[in-house]
């Protein structure tokens, strides 16, 4: 049974259709990637999944329920979290306050503190910088804050929008290790990436998006070997 089931999803900005009727699904515990060129509609798709953008058509069923009626601030309560494109850090909040914002909708204070400690174990650099304003962190550290923050909402589905964007290769490596660790803990994830090779290497399945449509899908391994994918996205 899939956790997320999207059918014929369409999204428009003004008159321009950015997502032109796509279908995809994500099973519980899966790590699925969505790759595609700039402007393909990946961010739009993710934003629609978390209610930041209203769809113009189609259905989204999450955890067995249609999400259409949910107010945008309530998606996180239903178990949908997103690490937004560009990280969306609160620069003038401290690292700790940023993490606490991730747990905003929760009231199990003791458990939150336990999980914060776990985040700090995962990202020891953040522990050292707990009381520092998040805006003063490096790009990689900010990405860690964004991921830790999203994890603190205890999502059933975690959406990651280009977590490697603008980061040095060594940091990208680190971020992908963390993605795999999080996946190993059973968190279901949808990963949007420009770095298609890395994304496909860590994922089980993948979708390829082009100009608002899904043009290919399959096992990540199969896509990695696919001629068209190799030419268009892997630079071979």
């Amino acid at each position: 049974m899939s956790l997320l089931q999207v059918k014929n999803l369409q999204v428009s900005y003004g008159g321009i259709q950015a997502v032109k009727g796509i279908d995809f699904s994500i099973g519980k515990g899966e790590l699925v990637t969505l790759i595609g060129a700039n402007g393909a509609g990946k961010t739009t798709t993710l934003r629609t999944l978390v209610g930041m953008v209203k769809r113009s058509g189609g259905s989204i069923e999450f955890d067995g329920k249609e999400t259409a009626g949910i107010p945008s601030h309530a998606f996180v309560r239903h178990g949908l979290a997103m690490v937004p494109e560009g990280r969306g850090i609160f620069g003038k909040l401290t690292v700790e306050e940023n993490l606490l914002m991730g747990a905003y909708v929760r009231d199990d204070k003791a458990q939150i503190l336990v999980e914060m400690e776990r985040i700090y174990q995962l990202f020891p650099r953040l522990k050292e910088r707990q009381r520092q304003l998040a805006g003063t962190l490096s790009g990689g550290e900010q990405q860690m804050v964004a991921m830790g923050r999203a994890m603190l909402s205890k999502p059933k589905l975690l959406l990651l929008d280009e977590p490697s964007m603008g980061l040095a290769p060594i940091i990208v490596q680190k971020i992908f290790e963390i993605i795999q660790m999080v996946a190993a803990e059973g968190v279901t994830m949808l990963l949007v990436e420009q770095n298609a090779r890395l994304a496909l290497e860590v994922s089980q399945r993948g979708y390829v998006m082009e100009s608002g449509r899904i043009t290919m899908e399959g096992e990540a391994k199969t896509l990695l070997d696919d001629e068209r994918v190799r030419n268009a996205y892997l630079g071979d």
């Binding site: 107010p71 996180v76 997103m82 991730g102 923050r149 909402s153």
Partner: peptide, 12 residues
């Protein structure tokens, strides 16, 4: 600082 991300965190 960022109303849309605050909304993402569950802030109304």
């Amino acid at each position: 600082q960022n109303p849309s991300v605050a909304g993402l965190m569950g802030v109304n």
